[in-house]
């Protein structure tokens, strides 16, 4: 990160900090959605962007986290924020379990399998599996987050919770990117055979990427459940996975600023053009096709690593 990047990042952070004071509740809520999608996309970026594993079932991990939080909260009255690590853990373990047998598949086949996993999870939720997911109606009556006696209910308050978490995530993931672990993932993406030849345990790193990305999706799911207080299978459809995939690809696979920018563009921008909202997906489809020809590396592509 050079000096101009630092200034830009600082300016964006400062703007975001004061945004809830200037905007009305509706727009703050839009920013909250952007924040949640940014969290999810940052997690997916580890899998898809850094490790190059085509995962189009990210909504399944998101759902796992949200349902874990909702069930623990409504059945056992565990405060919702306490379920945050558990939601992540359940989603992460689930990801490890499903990814283990299929992670060696070639790119586009992995994509198809992850779509399948996402659909199976959604169908299981709709069918009220084990009698705990509430079927098509989902789960309602999830309690508000309670922060040492301070109950979070306004969008403005959620804003700081969600974006604080996004900030923490950015810091951690930037550190991760610089680490031996991050370099191993990039090597894997560029050339799995060479990586294996250089002593990188590819199966281990692929699974680790899946587990960690899903862990983050699970925690995002917990925050989502806390924000909405109602969750249902519709929130975790195939299209959520597609939108997340799109955010990572459009922003620039492996680029954290790119993913954040794309989260704003894909989730926030359509709110500005609400009268054309039915054409939203049409435009996205077109943009995906054009981008792959014109700028396949994404809007803010990941820069090569510099040493020294």
């Amino acid at each position: 990160m050079n000096r101009t990047d630092g200034w830009i990042a600082g300016l964006c952070a400062a703007l975001l900090m004061v945004a809830p004071l200037l905007l009305n509740a509706y727009w703050v809520d839009v920013l909250n959605s952007v924040g949640l999608y940014a969290l999810l996309a940052l997690g997916l970026n580890l899998i898809l962007g850094e490790a190059g594993l085509f995962n189009m079932g990210h909504a399944a991990f998101y759902a796992m986290g949200a349902y874990t939080a909702a069930i623990l909260n409504t059945r056992y009255q565990i405060p919702i924020l306490w379920t945050l690590p558990l939601s992540g853990l359940v989603a992460g373990l689930f990801a490890l379990a499903v990814a283990r047998p299929v992670v060696h598949l070639r790119g586009d086949y992995l994509l198809i399998v992850t779509i399948g996993v996402g659909e199976i999870v959604r169908i299981a939720l709709v069918n009220d599996v084990f009698g705990i997911t509430g079927g098509a109606n989902g789960i309602f009556g999830i309690s508000r987050p309670n922060f040492f006696g301070f109950v979070i209910r306004q969008p403005q308050q959620f804003f700081y919770l969600i974006w604080g978490f996004v900030g923490l995530t950015i810091f951690l993931f930037l550190r991760l990117k610089q680490s031996r672990f991050g370099r191993a993932l990039n090597y894997l993406r560029e050339d799995a055979v060479a990586a294996e030849g250089s002593g990188i345990n590819t199966a281990y790193y692929k699974l680790a990427a899946f587990g960690l990305g899903a862990f983050w999706a699970g925690m995002a799911g917990c925050l989502f459940a806390a924000k909405m207080t109602i969750i249902s299978p519709e929130s975790f459809s195939f299209w959520e996975s597609v939108v997340l995939f799109m955010i990572v690809i459009l922003g620039g696979a492996g680029s954290i600023p790119g993913v954040l920018l794309a989260a704003f563009l894909v989730i926030g921008l359509p709110e500005l053009f609400r009268e054309f909202s039915s054409a939203r997906m049409l435009v996205f489809g077109l943009v995906m096709m054009v981008m792959m020809v014109v700028r396949p590396q994404g809007l803010l592509s990941a820069r090569g690593r510099r040493f020294g």
Partner: peptide, 20 residues
Amino acid sequence: SPRLSAVVSALGASIFLQNT
């Protein structure tokens, strides 16, 4: 182009066709 580009373009085309 690399495989991923074609896959993404195909998905884009799918979304475009559906929404048209």
